[in-house]
Amino acid sequence: MRVAFVGKGGAGKSAIAGTFARLLARAGGPVLAIDSDPMPGLAHSLGVEVTDAPIPDDAVTERREGEEGPRFRLREGLTPVEAVERYAVRGPDGVRFLQFGKLRGPAWALAGSQFAFREIVAGLPDDGWSLVGDLPGGTRQAFFGWGSYARTVLVVVEPTAKSLLSARRLARLALGERPPERVVALANKIRGPADVDLVARRSGLDVVGAVPWDEALAEAERQGLPPVDAAPDSAAVAAVVSLLERLNEEQTR
């Protein structure tokens, strides 16, 4: 399975992506959880100890002067699968976590790590690894192909005007040159049927799930703990279980 969670900042992408990745890992099969936010937060929802894990500069070789092609490449002989084994941090339930570092200084300091990150994600073979991505809030990264590994792009949408406007913008991902197989909405922080209706009517997307507003999940977020561990019996986690079941079913059909 290859999915990416996108949406407006604060819509709940990380909490849901982290939960989704852990549940998928429990079902067996290798899962790579991918955080491409330079202010990363997915680790908290996954239960991984480190929040950022830059890929060392020696994973890539820099283009020499006069050479053609991209500025960095994965070091000769290093395959994406080996790079995951080496650089992706191990988390609970066997989930692996890939990230390119935290933006602490100038952006160029992360350039090598970012190139390695993108080559690893783009080069992983289709069978085997499941990919669960968490993109930064907003529209920019998604439109620059940072979620292009995903077959299903899940737009996390709160029932608010701003979140819905972001969702309508993100719906245009389906119109790109190499669009994902589908772009769908996941309604979040839902307090009643009217909220789901609102997301269905105004996101411009099919709604594949609805995660309720959940105080137990909010408490897990306050404490920086993974919802699957801190609120395993919550309605929100149950809704992510349903989402995973639905996507699994649709995939096998």
């Binding site: 407006k8 900042g9 604060g10 819509a11 937060g41 930064p136 809030g137």
Partner: peptide, 8 residues
């Protein structure tokens, strides 16, 4: 601030 924290 972080996304969703209420900047806008």
């Amino acid at each position: 601030g972080k996304g969703g924290s209420g900047k806008t």
